[in-house]
């Protein structure tokens, strides 16, 4: 954990109720880790996964879900945030040669940095991105530059008609490990289909650094805090 000030470089809409915020500050983040922003007029910090990190520059993708994220859309260039950075654990990509990245909705965010990690290692990842419908798609072009992308939409308005787990079952994508982030219901279905992967979980957090036990889940290894032992867990260990 590191407490720093981060300055907003840009904050733009990238899709339906979905925004990209780029910040700069003195921190080093690895795929899977998250940060917590102290928003004005909100008590609790807000946790965000890291969609891209490079050279002290951080990209967040966020969906407007409540008052906090709604306020965030108004934030402009030069705004300084108090940030807790370098929180949580990381994806384990050691010995992975055929990665499959599976994201649902705003859950695609941490997978973008991961796809870049693989690209930098000379590995083109297969990626399945799931959205409710065509209008809610975002960041697809960015992913296409570095990965093989398959799209699934719940209503069939673009790509595969159905959710990402159904899409995976119908596809013949070969992989030695998957990495997934998205709604709990998606992760649960995925874990019951295959335990050959890692899940990045989301939770309402109190502190974000292991103090309050507000985000504890049950795993085969005992109680685990999403913010501290996670947010990345082996699919085989999460008890849904």
């Amino acid at each position: 954990m590191k407490q720093i000030k981060m300055t907003v470089l840009s904050n733009t809409s990238v899709g339906h109720d979905t925004f990209e915020m780029i910040l700069t500050g003195d921190t080093i983040l690895r795929s899977g880790q998250f940060i917590e922003l102290q928003l004005p007029n909100k008590y609790l910090r807000r946790p965000f996964s890291v969609a891209r990190y490079k050279d002290n520059t951080l990209t967040l993708l966020y969906k407007v879900l409540g008052a906090g994220t709604s306020d965030m859309t108004e934030v402009g260039f030069g705004t300084v945030f108090d940030v807790l950075s370098e929180l949580g654990n990381t994806f384990d990509i050691s010995n992975v040669t055929s990665p499959l990245l599976i994201g649902g909705g705003i859950g695609i965010a941490p997978l973008f940095n991961l796809a870049n990690d693989f690209a930098e290692k000379g590995i083109t990842a297969n990626v399945i991105l799931g959205f409710r419908n065509k209008d809610e798609m975002f960041y697809v072009e960015e992913f296409k530059k570095i990965a093989n992308v398959t799209i699934a939409t719940d209503d069939g308005s673009f790509g595969f008609a159905g959710n990402v787990v159904e899409c995976l079952k119908r596809s013949n994508i070969a992989y030695d490990k998957y990495f997934a982030c998205g709604p709990m219901v998606m992760l649960k279905a995925l874990a019951s289909h295959s335990d050959m992967g890692e899940l990045s979980l989301e939770a309402r957090m109190g502190c974000g650094f292991g103090a309050c036990m507000g985000c504890t889940i049950q795993t085969t290894k005992g109680y685990a805090r999403v913010c501290k032992e996670g947010p990345v867990f082996k699919a085989s260990e999460v008890i849904f």
Binding site: Y43, G214, C215
Partner: peptide, 20 residues
């Protein structure tokens, strides 16, 4: 004790609710 199921935390004006 494991405690309560998630969510255990909610934002409030000038504070939070917890049900750990």
């Amino acid at each position: 004790r494991y405690g309560n199921p998630l969510p255990r935390i909610a934002e409030c004006p000038s504070g939070l609710i917890n049900a750990v």
